[in-house]
Design a protein around this nucleic acid. Sequence first.
DNA 1: TTTTGAGTTGTTCGA
DNA 2: GTCGAACAACTCAAA
Length: 482
Amino acid sequence: MAETPVIYWYRQDLRVDDLPGLAAAASAGRPVLPCFILDDTLPERERPGGASRWWLHHSLAALAQDLGKLGLPLLLRRGAHADELAQLVAQTGAQTVYCSRRVEPAEAARERTLHEALAADGVTLKRYPGSLLFEPEAIRTQADAAYKVFTPFWKACLREPAPAAPAAAPDKPAAPATLPGSLSLDDLALLPRDPDWAGHWPRLWQPGTAGARAALQRFLENAIGDYDEGRNHPQREATSRLSPHLHFGEISPRAVWHAVTAHCQGQPDLEAQRHKFLSELGWREFSHYLLHHFPHIVEKPFKEEFSKFPWLGNEQLLRAWQRGMTGYPLVDAGMRELWRTGYMHNRVRMIVASFLTKHLLVHWRSGERWFHDTLVDADLANNTCGWQWVAGSGADAAPFFRIFNPTLQGKRFDAQGEYVRRWVPELAQLPDKHIHEPARAPQQVLAAAGVVLGETYPEPIVDHGQAREAALAAYGSIRSEA
DNA sequence: TTTTGAGTTGTTCGA
DNA sequence: GTCGAACAACTCAAA
């Protein structure tokens, strides 16, 4: 009789190297059966959005290849994860299920109930770290509380022993002799059809571990030397673009940490850049840390007084924002980059988020939902904390009076208008001087550039000065009522 | 326990 | 055009 296998349950850790749970499964002395379950029974906000589903498809394909090189299969299932795992356990006789832990409240709860359900059948669920540099329980203030401010949090992380060096993939684990039934990747129906809006995405992205490593290498070779400044300019290729790879776990954060550190070794002039970049990994850590310690922030404002904030909830304004038709070129460029590529530059994310929440007074959750559906790197922790930070309701958030002026931001960070011209081509012929403010351009300049406001490009849907005053008044109202 | 320094990413206004 | 102050107090974290 064939030896019963152990199961490795893949979640958002789609890699084979530096994966503690898989390493533990492989060293259990039994064949390893890796599986992935697409759980379409979950509520919408807990399932991957459209852009993420595209990425997931290709990432699973890459994972299957990487597992294949180790001689392992990747079993695919679709359905309620608990039912599917129970079935898989029954079919194989497995006594142990391994996985990487997740900190999102619903996922953590799922681990607990699954642990109990499996235990009732005499099966053990074993959870392992691997998705974060520092486990959330390990970082506490001196008063043994959870940090609420980024800088002391990150300093505390940096006082910890440095993350361990990444480990190689398990060495030739045994594969099960017989396989339970598996779906094909196409059966998961993750790719968009009718229309296939992602037809050009394979030219933009390379999901999977190989793509993650290539992105990291490109970043180290071309961009880290000017990261601190370059990262603010959306038209430059000055960021790592690792976010979707990290979200799906195609590369471990400590592999990134060590690659960056090794690259900068012996180059004192890169030390500040390295620190800046690592602190961005720190923000990813902080978001997940906050979700672990303050699970309610997925639904509710971190700062309680914001539950009284007078959001307008104007659908028309929301739609104009979503479509990149606000009449503010930098905002529209960002929203169209998102729609077209599944990605938006970080600085522009802050600007469009500030615009939605402060200029349009639309609830941050509307923006968060849109990002969830359209971003390839959509991540509950980063998305929630990012939006709450901008809206002013989050932990360590921007002060309420910090309202981005999209025109000024454009002039500062896209001075030649390259970013706007790329994503808002109907403005491409405008001279630099007017590219961020078409509504104030002289009539003959507009005519020469073929721009007809209200026809080829919208008039600003709100006036910046008035919107700013309204936002300040709205924030003032929840302060005085508090 | 009390005190003290600090806190991602900005804008506007007036000198 | 450039520069510094004001914006509004507040909470957090550590000494």
